[in-house]
Simulated scan of single mutants.
Amino acid sequence: MAKHGSDSGVYDEHGRFVNSKFEEIFHKYARTHPDALTADELNEFLKGNREPKDYGGWIGGLSEWKILYYLAKDKDGLLKKDTIRSVYDGSLFEKMAAEKINKKKHSEK
């Protein structure tokens, strides 16, 4: 259901995760760190996936990835490979909740 034009291609037309497409993101765009994307590298990735005149797809991809970057970047402004993979496997919000609980426990000590 989440497939749209100008997407990453990490899910195929049947909704299956395609690991080679996932790895391709980092081979092509992760220049600063092999396992993470900076804000500029994310922008290059989004531009690289644009299909001509697919304005809805551009907006969809931009929205999804920019929200992910805002919510899940680390303290150095990096969107890490493991974090992105957790979006695809559905575990991101569970991990974020666990981190928040852990952080709260440490701050209460």
Rank of each mutant, 00 (worst) to 15 (best):
D54W: 01
M96K: 00
N102D: 03
D89S: 07
G9I: 04
K21N: 15
L78I: 04
W65Q: 00
K21V: 13
A39I: 10
A39G: 05
E41R: 00
L42F: 11
N49V: 07
K80E: 14
R85A: 15
E24T: 14
K104I: 02
F22Y: 15
A98M: 04
G77E: 06
K47A: 09
E41P: 00
F17W: 13
L79Q: 02
I67H: 06
D54A: 11
L46M: 12
W58M: 05
H106M: 10
G15Y: 09
S20L: 15
L62S: 07
N49I: 07
L37G: 01
K95D: 05
E41G: 00
L71I: 02
I101M: 05
Y70R: 08
K66M: 07
G61W: 00
D7Y: 07
E24K: 13
G48K: 03
P34Q: 06
A30S: 15
G15D: 01
S6G: 06
K104A: 10
L68P: 05
K21F: 10
D40A: 11
K28C: 11
P34Y: 10
E51F: 05
I84L: 15
S91P: 10
E94S: 09
K104M: 07
W65S: 00
Y69Q: 04
K28A: 08
Y55E: 10
I25A: 13
I59G: 02
Y70P: 00
D12G: 03
L37P: 01
R50S: 08
I67P: 00
S8V: 14
H4S: 09
T38C: 11
V10G: 14
S86P: 13
G90L: 10
D35S: 12
K3E: 03
L62Q: 08
N49M: 09
P52M: 04
L62K: 03
